Amino acid sequence: MPANTLPDSASLGGFLRDRRARVQPGPGAGTRRRTPGLRREEVAARAGVSVTWYTWLEQGRGGPPSSEVLERLAGALELDDVGREVLFLLAQHRPPPLTQTAAPAVTPALQRVLDALPTSPAYVKTPAWDIVAWNAAAVAVLADYALLRPAERNVLRRLFGTPGARDRLPDWEEDARFALAAFRVDAARAGGSPEAAALAAELRETSADFRRLWAENEMRTHGVGLKRLHHPAAGLLTLEYSAFAVDGGEGLSMVVFTPASPADEQAIARLLADQPRAA
């Protein structure tokens, strides 16, 4: 194969043909088959589409299938989560919408990643910005999430509803505007999370600042940047933040706040050293 030629499976048609060949026919499908896997008409019947149209898809003809059809094709071809994602990427050049399930589980391996960041506060959040895991540095610098009720572990509720939030954040207006812009993107990526929609409706009712900033309709990805906060014991801290998608985490992302200077790192280390005595 020439170096500049993609494998056949890198096209939608090639991917469909490859996956069709991997599916075992069900009982009663007959044994006299010249090729392995399902026939085109069997895939079409499973997916509820015409044989002609499915044949066009494998031949690279016709327009891109709708999300509904792609979901039916994923079921017909018995694709796992990775296969489903590749199908959407090849057909629509975007990942599939996230499936709405119970709260995603934080694996022990992911918790170990958090714990391996000794002086960098870090947490894992859902598309609705509920914090579901955190490390010791986050407890020392941001909040002791274990002492909060689940509803109180939401970043936006704390930003717009916690007394004293403005006092702790010297750049509160900029931080709040950025948070809402990134929250909009996270909710869109989640395919219209009902939890995110309910949170937005709740905060529109309870916070005039939320209503004002929400009406601006800004959208931004997390990217990287600086966050300043006043800590009651450590004083002013400056942190660099970065966000990372958690692969296989159904919309989970990990946000890491790295000390911006050696002085900030030393201040966090002192907070952590004081935690056992304060417990």
Rank of each mutant, 00 (worst) to 15 (best):
189 R>E: 02
150 P>N: 12
101 T>A: 09
199 L>P: 13
183 F>V: 08
170 P>L: 09
170 P>M: 10
127 P>K: 10
138 A>P: 04
121 P>V: 11
137 A>W: 13
110 L>E: 14
190 A>V: 07
158 R>M: 14
138 A>C: 13
199 L>C: 11
153 R>T: 09
104 P>A: 08
154 N>Q: 10
139 V>P: 09
146 A>C: 02
174 E>T: 05
119 T>K: 11
196 A>P: 06
129 W>Q: 09
191 G>E: 05
119 T>S: 15
102 A>F: 01
169 L>M: 13
161 G>K: 04
99 T>V: 09
196 A>I: 05
149 R>F: 12
125 K>M: 11
189 R>S: 04
123 Y>C: 09
181 A>S: 14
196 A>R: 01
129 W>P: 00
108 P>C: 08
182 A>F: 01
103 A>C: 06
145 Y>C: 03
158 R>C: 08
115 D>C: 03
110 L>V: 02
177 R>I: 00
124 V>C: 12
174 E>R: 11
161 G>A: 07
187 A>Y: 02
102 A>K: 03
175 D>C: 03
112 R>Q: 15
178 F>Q: 15
149 R>A: 15
185 V>R: 02
183 F>D: 05
175 D>M: 06
158 R>H: 10
184 R>T: 12
134 W>V: 03
180 L>T: 04
119 T>N: 14
109 A>M: 09
195 E>W: 00
141 V>I: 09
115 D>N: 13
132 V>S: 06
172 W>F: 09
196 A>S: 15
114 L>Q: 12
168 R>K: 10
181 A>E: 04
198 A>H: 10
155 V>E: 14
186 D>C: 05
199 L>M: 09
107 T>H: 07
156 L>I: 06
111 Q>P: 05
159 L>T: 07
154 N>T: 04
136 A>V: 03
168 R>T: 04
113 V>C: 12
129 W>N: 07
105 A>N: 06
129 W>S: 13
130 D>R: 00
98 L>K: 08
141 V>D: 15
152 E>N: 00
130 D>A: 06
156 L>F: 14
143 A>K: 04
185 V>G: 00
120 S>I: 12
197 A>I: 05
186 D>M: 02
136 A>G: 05
167 D>W: 03
121 P>Y: 11
176 A>F: 13
138 A>V: 06
198 A>Y: 11
160 F>D: 01
115 D>P: 05
145 Y>N: 12
109 A>D: 14
99 T>E: 12
114 L>Y: 14
193 S>L: 08
177 R>E: 15
140 A>L: 11
154 N>L: 07
146 A>T: 03
123 Y>G: 01
